[in-house]
Amino acid sequence: MQGLLAELFPHVVERPQDFLDSIVETLIMTGWSGTLMLVFGLILGVALTATKPRGILENRLIYQVLDKAINLLRSIPFVILIALLMNVTRLLMGTRIGVRGVIPPLVVGSTPFFARQVDSALAEVDPGLIEAAKSMGCRPLGIILRVYLREGTAAIARGATITLISLIGLTAMAGYVGAGGLGDYAIVFGYNYNRMDVVWASVIVIVLIVTVIQAAGTLIARKNTH
């Protein structure tokens, strides 16, 4: 086994610590920014749905501001977003480099996308259910928690899966601010030295991570579909 790995991935096996470090970096980046993205995206997505015209807490001003802000943020390429948020990042995290320095841009880069996913997931919830809940005396917060989020869980899980997977794509660019990760590892140690085994090893691990996320998302969606 050891021999086979050394033969297939000579440069990875030569310095295994670099490879393991970059896996850990990718997982940390995805884990932290993914968690924050899920929380903020859910809140924003719910706010969009609720304040929309004919929504349960209709509010033209809030809706317009959210809608425009989300569109604006979604249109900025991630690499530029890192540069743009430089000062904010330093203020929030105390540094603008490394894993810590890349988390704010990752969150800002992925949250608007997830907010849209949540918004469209909640749009699939039958308006008749909202009406029924209102007729039973449910108040707006109850409708959000007990109807929208509960009935929309499967669709939200599917949206979260898509967003998390694209978030992993974004972490590949973390090397720009020295945060490392598998994308950086593949370029710096693989591509730059023409070591294809390093690139392949990165790809295999990323595919594995994506597969696990996809499987978890599908499972949650299926458990919530009756």
Binding site: D126, G128, L129, E131, R150, E151, T153, N224
Partner: peptide
């Protein structure tokens, strides 16, 4: 359309 909660 009955409007029952499908997940319950």
């Amino acid at each position: 359309q009955f409007n029952l909660f499908a997940t319950r």
